[in-house]
C-alpha cells in the first residue's frame, strides 16, 4: 500500500512504548501492532484523533504517501 504509517517514528520521538500508547489511546495492543506494522486496511478518524492527541502531533506526521512509480 502506498500509504505508510510512521507510528513507530513518532513513538520514538515522544519516547513512548507501545504499551503506554495502547493504555492512553484506549485501543488494544494487537490493534496497535496491526497499525504499526502497516497491516491495517483503514483507520477511523476517532482513532487518528486519539493517537494525535496522545502523541501531540498532526495526522500528517503519522501518515505518509509513497508513490511506487
Amino acid at each position: 500500500m502506498p500509504i505508510i504509517i510512521n507510528l513507530d517514528v513518532m513513538m520514538a520521538k515522544r519516547k513512548m512504548s507501545l504499551n503506554e500508547l495502547s493504555e492512553k489511546v484506549g485501543i488494544t495492543l494487537s490493534n496497535l501492532s496491526i497499525l504499526k506494522t502497516g497491516k491495517a486496511k483503514a483507520i477511523r478518524f476517532s482513532t487518528l484523533e486519539s493517537i494525535c492527541e496522545v502523541l501531540d502531533c498532526q495526522p500528517g506526521d503519522l501518515l505518509e504517501f509513497h508513490n511506487k512509480e
Partner: peptide, 8 residues
C-alpha cells in the same frame, strides 16, 4: 469482513 477486521 477482512477489511472490517483490519480497520483500527
Amino acid at each position: 469482513q477482512t477489511e472490517n477486521q483490519y480497520t483500527i
